[in-house]
């Protein structure tokens, strides 16, 4: 996250320098200018900030505050200190949810990234119509909506009426009711609803790679793989980073799938941190604890994003 601010300030620096070089810009005037700019900037920002502060930032701090309270069905029963957080470490369900979330992220993120890069590479040189067609098709599950996609999969995976068992000849097998298969179907469906945006991004990024460098390298006898790793891969690095981050966030947030297909079961085999927040708040009505899990989830996502930024930076 910190890198982004660096980029922002670095981008701002040359412009500032340019401004001060102008003959009309004395130091006294530039201070007045800064004040003027600040006032007008906040006027432009105000409508957006009302919503952002009111419905994102404020609830964020309330959430942090609640996580230190003993706050259940009967209202706030007192200050709990770190009790909610200590409870997390002893909570079997949380352990299970943590491991499942990790499994989903570790499997889904590299698969989605590699697969969308492959599809992007395969279609970016096509003519407009087939390219738009494929891009659209892979985006279809995203647009169709998580609920519609989930209910149709529920039908496909149904033990008796479901298409999968009819084709595979495994009538009666309950894929979602089995603790060892359920999570893999969650990951598969998550995968189909995750690759649309990365493909759009990769098609655009690959289309922007300078073809003259590639041609020059090929004339010099570079192989396909060399062209890819030495020229294309570095050129699309910022896209890959963005894809990694959004896919990670998406995987952490996968909710409709779990709520509609398995409700975290069987035997917590599809319980995730995300679903536990919901379950703890709405079924168990333990708001203090739910908020503590939420805070931990936010911290885990922040750590993952930071690691990805770091890795991408050292790669460059």
């Amino acid at each position: 996250m910190a890198q982004n601010t660096d980029v922002a300030t670095a981008a701002a620096a040359p412009r500032k320098a340019k401004k001060s070089q102008k003959p009309s810009g004395t130091s006294g005037m530039s201070r007045a200018l800064v004040r003027r700019e600040t006032i007008s900037a906040y006027c432009f920002l105000l409508p957006s900030l009302v919503f952002f502060v009111g419905f994102v930032v404020v609830p964020m701090f309330i959430c942090l505050f609640y996580s230190f309270l003993d706050y259940g069905l009967g209202g706030v029963a007192g200050f709990a200190g770190l009790d909610n957080y200590i409870q997390l470490f002893q909570d079997e369900v949380f352990h299970k949810g943590f491991m499942n979330t990790l499994l989903i992220v570790v499997v889904a993120v590299p698969t989605v990234t590699a697969f969308s890069l492959w599809v992007g590479s395969a279609i970016y040189k096509m003519h407009t119509i087939p390219r738009s067609f494929f891009r659209c098709v892979f985006y279809l599950p995203v647009v169709t909506g998580s609920v519609a996609v989930t209910v149709v999969w529920k039908w496909i995976l149904h033990p008796y009426n479901g298409l999968l068992n009819q084709i595979a000849g495994t009538t009666g097998f309950d894929w979602l009711g089995n603790a060892s298969t359920a999570i893999w179907f969650i990951i598969l469906i998550l995968f189909t609803t995750s690759i649309g945006q990365p493909i759009v991004l990769y098609v655009a990024a690959l289309g922007n790679v300078d073809t003259s460098i590639i041609e020059a390298a090929q004339v010099d006898g570079a192989t396909k793989l060399q062209v890819f790793w030495k020229i294309k891969w570095p050129a699309i690095m910022s896209t890959t980073l963005y894809v990694l981050v959004i896919t990670t966030i998406n995987s952490f947030q996968c909710f409709a799938l779990i709520q509609l297909l398995t409700r975290g079961g069987p035997l917590n085999s599809t319980m995730t941190i995300m679903y536990q927040v919901y379950d703890t708040a709405y079924r168990l009505q333990d708001f203090g604890y739910a908020n503590a899990i939420g805070v931990i989830l936010a911290i885990i996502i922040a750590i993952f994003s930071a690691i990805q930024f770091k890795l991408a930076k050292t790669d460059n």
């Binding site: 994102v56 930032v57 609830p59 959430c63 966030i249 708040a281 739910a290 939420g294 996502i301």
Partner: peptide, 12 residues
């Protein structure tokens, strides 16, 4: 805030 899951802040 973009990385923050909406679900985290839903109770407040």
């Amino acid at each position: 805030a973009m990385a923050l899951p909406k679900q985290v802040i839903v109770i407040p």
